[in-house]
Design a protein around this nucleic acid. Structure first.
Length: 545
RNA sequence: GGUGGGUUCGUCUAAAGGCUAGGACUCAAGAUUUUCAUUCUUGCAAUGGGGGUUCGAUUCCCCCACCCACUACCA
């Protein structure tokens, strides 16, 4: 049994988008499930389209997602250029494999399966334009090649002369017409195509001495002993060509699987790189800065966890056949199968993506969340005093707070919005809520509430933290103290015959600036007695004018 | 235009000829809660159309419609 070897072979023409990440992911899952290798190969045979930084971006994106190539890139995230035991097929960048390809193309010419063509791009464009004017399509194929300038139509001497004198000739694959090509796709099953519909594709071009995608792809997949080619559906039309190429070389071909496309959330067409900013969700895993300096945000910068991002992508076009939706990478490796990949294109749903992140946020420990939240705060207020990350005392406070608010957020970046009033008194009060809850007599009730709070004997969060309790005791104490505050407050409200909603919401308005948020007892427990009373006094002064 | 691929709730999908077409996201309602959120319950909502084959089609076959991809010396 041959060792499973699959590859992800992106072209560094720009940032990798999420469709590309999914293709890489499926390759990776398949490889790991079969105890095989996942190879990264850079297909940069079009030097004009190569974008500086794109290659690095692709590798970093895959690393962020936890998709680490076994071959192709080293542990530092650089494409491997020198052969070694762990990288026997180096270099893994096609531009650096340049010397390899010409001989293979020539080999096909010798076999009579390919030929030299001398038509210039301008000549061909002209032909295409002419055909289009007649509402036809110009195809470089068996019908036309006899009328074009190539080694089939031209005398041998002329061919030799042109090969020597011109620098822009190409080698084209000679398609024999009238053959039904039987193909198998792991996802789509049996497909038949007649070779007459194919054109004589360029395999190699003298202008830059480089192969085209098709040749480079087949040669490298063969040389690198690839066993399964898992790629996007846009390659399905090239499958017959690739079958014929393997046949022409006399090589055993890999098995093929063509993945469904990722479609735009709204409107028509496949998800494209431009959709991101337009529709308000990222299309890229990481932030991308174009060579022109234009910045596009990625999932990482939007606050997504890579695990959530990967999980979401895995389920876009594949399902396990069960109701399970949350998967770790290891679980994905165990459950994945190409047979259960969907055939039809999948429309990407940004709402579901957020939901996935919410699920992962909740699974996170308070400690981890606190660290992430501290970073957020530092980023937000690097010039202000609210810096909690460096202070152990505050960090414990943060962790405890995170445990309380994580149910209410999709992202850590939501945390500040939800909990800012734990760090500083509200700077303004919601007008509607003031109108609703601040009536004649409210000030007096708040005075009373403030007195009640003043006499409650409780330890606030800071006091508990300073006691260095263990986890269980801490949790127990926390609950007991919050309960105590709550009981005293409700007793007061009931004894006075006040309305629960009225008093509680007014207090919330005072503490949080609006009539929504966490439990009053929890807020008091966190901001502490002194702080709570000060806020009430200040609010009365401010609102009771 | 040509070639190929596809088509189940708004979206992602399950049902490999056989229970009332199931689940998730979204949305709505209710319960819980001092508010918001969470949680729980309930609800809305689909087999593109037409022919076959069959006792019985989401499923198999044919035609149509629509969507998508490809159609470069790009990948």
């Amino acid at each position: 049994m041959k060792k499973t070897r699959v590859r992800f072979a992106p072209s560094p023409t720009g940032p990798l988008h999420m469709g590309g990440v999914r293709t890489a992911l499926y390759n990776y899952l398949y490889a790991k499930q079969h105890d095989g290798d996942f190879i990264l190969r850079i297909e940069d045979t079009d030097s004009h389209r190569t974008v500086p930084g794109a290659e690095k971006y692709i590798i970093e994106s895959l690393r962020w997602c936890g998709i680490i190539p076994d071959e192709g890139a080293d542990i530092n995230g650089h494409i491997v250029e020198e052969k070694s035991e762990s990288h026997p097929y180096a270099p893994y960048r096609q531009s650096q494999r340049k010397p390899i390809y010409k001989a293979y193309a020539e080999q096909l010419v010798k076999k009579g399966l390919a030929y030299y063509a001398f038509d210039t791009p301008e000549e061909l464009n002209e032909k295409r334009a002419e055909a289009e004017a007649e509402k036809k399509t110009f195809i470089y194929n068996h019908e036309n090649r006899g009328r074009l300038r190539n080694s089939i139509s031209l005398p041998e001497a002329e061919t030799q002369k042109l090969l020597k004198e011109t620098g822009h000739w190409t080698i084209r694959f000679k398609i024999t017409p009238g053959r039904d090509i039987d193909m198998d796709d792991i996802i789509r099953g049996h497909i038949v195509i007649n070779s007459s519909t194919l054109d004589d594709k360029v395999l190699w071009k003298a202008s830059d001495g480089l192969p085209t995608y098709h040749l480079a792809n087949i040669v490298d997949d063969h040389l690198m002993q690839i066993t399964e080619v898992i790629r996007g559906e846009e390659w399905l039309p090239s499958l017959p060509l690739h079958y014929l190429l393997y046949e022409a070389f006399g090589w055993e071909r890999p098995r093929f699987a063509h993945l469904p496309l990722l479609l735009k959330p709204t409107g028509q067409g496949k998800l494209s790189k431009r959709d991101g900013d337009k529709l308000g969700f990222p299309v890229f895993p990481l932030q991308w800065t174009s060579p022109e300096g234009e910045i596009t945000k990625g999932y990482r910068e939007e606050g997504y966890y890579p695990q959530a991002f990967i999980n979401m992508l895995a389920l876009l076009g594949w399902n396990p056949g069960t109701d399970q939706e949350i998967f770790t990478m290891d679980e994905l490796i165990k459950s994945f199968s190409l047979e259960r990949v969907t055939k039809s294109g999948a429309r990407f749903n940004p709402e579901k993506a957020k939901w996935f992140n919410q699920q992962y946020l909740r699974m996170r420990s308070d400690h981890d969340l606190a660290r992430e939240f501290a970073n957020e705060i530092d980023k937000k207020f690097h010039n202000r005093e609210i810096s909690v990350s460096t202070n152990d005392m505050s960090f414990a406070y943060l962790a405890s707070l995170c445990g309380l608010i994580k149910e209410r957020a999709h992202f850590v970046s939501d945390f500040w919005e939800i909990s800012h009033y734990f760090f500083e008194a509200p700077v303004e009060f919601d007008e509607k809520d003031v109108k609703k809850f601040w009536n004649p007599g409210t000030a007096e009730k708040m005075e009373e509430a403030s007195e009640v709070i003043n006499v409650i004997e409780f330890k606030d969060i800071k006091a508990l933290i300073s006691e260095n309790l263990n986890k269980e005791d801490m949790e127990k104490e926390r609950r007991e103290n919050i309960n105590k505050i709550e009981t005293k407050l409700t007793d007061f409200i009931n004894e006075k015959g006040y309305k629960m909603g009225e008093i509680m919401n007014t207090l919330r308005l005072i503490f949080a600036g609006q009539a929504k948020g966490l439990g009053i007892a929890e807020i008091i427990f966190f901001i502490g007695k002194t702080n709570a009373i000060t806020r009430i006094k200040d609010a009365i002064r401010y609102l009771d004018r």
